[in-house]
Design a protein around this nucleic acid. Sequence first.
DNA 1: TTGTATGCGTTATCAA
DNA 2: TTGATAACGCATACAA
Lengths: 339, 339
Amino acid sequence: MNITIKEIAELCGVSRGTVDRVLHNRGNVNKETEALIKDTIERLGYTPNITGKILAAKKKGLKIGVILISKGNPFFNDVLKGINRAKEEYRGYGVSVSIHQLEGYDVEKQVKKMEELRDKVDAIILNPINDILVVNKINELVKEGLIVINVNTDVEKSDRIYYIGSDYIKGGETACGILALLTGGSTKVAILTGSKKVLGHNQRIHGFKRIKEQRYPDIDIVAISETNDSDELAYIETKKILENHEIDSIVIVAAGVAGVCKAVQDMNMEDKITIVSFDAVPITRKMLEIGIIKATICQQPFTQGYKSIELAYNHFITGNKLKKDRYIVKNEIKILENL
Amino acid sequence: MNITIKEIAELCGVSRGTVDRVLHNRGNVNKETEALIKDTIERLGYTPNITGKILAAKKKGLKIGVILISKGNPFFNDVLKGINRAKEEYRGYGVSVSIHQLEGYDVEKQVKKMEELRDKVDAIILNPINDILVVNKINELVKEGLIVINVNTDVEKSDRIYYIGSDYIKGGETACGILALLTGGSTKVAILTGSKKVLGHNQRIHGFKRIKEQRYPDIDIVAISETNDSDELAYIETKKILENHEIDSIVIVAAGVAGVCKAVQDMNMEDKITIVSFDAVPITRKMLEIGIIKATICQQPFTQGYKSIELAYNHFITGNKLKKDRYIVKNEIKILENL
DNA sequence: TTGTATGCGTTATCAA
DNA sequence: TTGATAACGCATACAA
C-alpha cells in the first residue's frame, strides 16, 4: 500500500503534526525540517489516502445548496432525481443538500438566492442565467472559497469550479445527422428554437448548420422561429410555417413540443413531416409513442444531477486536484424502442 | 447524523464489542442483552455508517480477479479501460485487481482459471461461457463465499451475485426500430449473426423479430446467416446473400463487420444497402465515418468494466444488502455525429 | 517551532 | 459472556 503521513513523520523523525503543517502550507515549520519533509514526500511519492480523507471529511461535513430554474420545467425532473439520489447516497459521508427551485429567468432572484446561501453552504450547484450580475456573483463566491458548479448551462468568463452538462453544439450536429438519416439526406426543414437569446439553443442551431454545410448539401433550412418555450406560441409559429412553406421536417431545439406537434396534427401532416426533438419530457415520450416524433436527443439529465453532487464532494475531498473543469454528458439518440 | 455503534453501546450500557457481536451474529451474547441491543438497533433505525465501513474494509483489502475471453476481441478494449480506470481509483480503498485474458470459447480453460483464482481472490469478475461446467463452478465458488459477478453475458441458473451487461433483446428491438426509421419502415433485410449457439446473438434476433411483428409489417427478413464472428466467413455469406436475394438492408448482430462491409463494397452496393451494426470497434467506426454503416448500437463497454469493479466493492462493503442483482446498461444508438 | 492527543465509525483481537 | 483497546489515515485543537 502507499506511504502515509505517519510513515513520513517517522522517517523524518518528526511528528505527524509537522508533516501536516508542511502538507497544508500552514507555516510555522523550520526551514530545514520543511525541506526534508518536502523532499521525502516528493521522493516517496506521497499521495493522501482517499479513505482517510473521506473519514476526516465526514467530521467536517459538506453543505451543498442547489439553485435551479426548474419550476414548471419538466426537463429538470430527472436532474432532480439524480440530485436526490446522490443526496441519499452521500448522507452517510456527512453531506447535506438543500434544493432551491426558482421560476423564470430572473437575474435578481438568482443572485439574491446565491447571496442568501453564501454563509449557509460550502458549495453551490447552480443552473446559471447568462448575465454579468450572475457571473460576478459566481466569481465573488469562488474567491471566498465556495465551490460553485454550473449545471446544464455554463456561462462565459466565470470562475466556476466545474461545468457539468451537454455539448450543445454536438447536440445540434447529432440532430442534423439523425435527420439526414431519417430523410435520406434530402429535406426542407424548419427549426423551432426557444429564444435567440439563449446560448444553448443557438449552439444547437449552430451545430446543426455546421454539419449540414459539411455533409448534407440537400438539407435546406427553410425557416427558423422562436417559441419562447411556450406551447401556444409554438403552435402559432408552426402553423404559420406549415401554411407558408413546403417543408417535410421539423427540428425542435427547445421546449414547445406539445404546441408544434398539435399544429402538425391539426393540419393532418403527421405522415408528411419528420420531427426530431431534444430531451424526453412526458409529452415528448408520448409523441414518440404515437409516432409523431421520430427521434429525440437526450442529455442524460439524471447524470447531470447526480454527478453535480459527486463533483462537489470530490472537490471538497481532494482540494483543487481534479484536472478537468468540465464533465460533458453524452448526446443520446432515443427512439421509441430504446427510450 | 445517524446513530452509531458507540451510541448504541452507551444507550444499552454495554461495550461496542457486544453490540458488534449482536450486529454480526457472532454469538456469545447474553440473551437479554442481545434482545435489548436488537431492540435498540431496531427502534433507532441503526444503519452502519459507510465511511466507517470503508476505512475498516481498507484494512482487510479486497482482491479481485477478472477473467475475460477478450484476447483478439476488440470489443473488450473499452471494457478493459473501464476496469483499469476503476482499478486505479479503488487502489486507495485497498482494492487490488488482477486481469486474466483468455482466448476463444474454451470451457475447460475458463473453469481452470476460476479454480486457480479460488484461493487467491475474494471476488471474481467473469465473462462466462454458457456451459454447465462453468455454472457449477460459479455456484461452488459463491457457496464458498466468493463474490462472483458476470459481466457482458449472463448464464442461466447460476448463483452469481450480479450480472452487469446489456439487455440483448432490447438491443435487437432497438436495431429494428432504427432500421425502420432509416428505411421508411419498409425493407428486405438480411441478418448476419455470429452463432446460433450464442445466447446474446439469438436474443438480439429475437428482439428484432418481436418488434418487427408488433410494429413494422413491411420489414421482411430475407435471410439469417452465421459468420462465426469471422470476417472471412462473413464476407462469403454476405456475398452469397447479395447474389441470391434482393435485399436493401443488413443488420449485423455480432462480429464480422469488416467482412460484411467488404462484400458490400466489392459488389458496389454501398448506396443501396442500409447497414446497422452493434458495438463500435475500430472497423465499425471507420465504416460509420465513410458512410457504409449508418448506425450502430452500443452497450456502454467502459461502464460494464468500471461498474463491475464498483459492484464487487460495494458488495464487499455492504454485505448482501443490495436489492438488485442486475445492472443493465443502455443500448445506445450511435451515428457518425455522436460517435 | 514542534509534539501530543483526540475524533471520525467500524472491525477485530486480546484480556478479563 | 463481556469489556477494553488498537487499527485504518487524515485533520486539528491544544499543549509544550
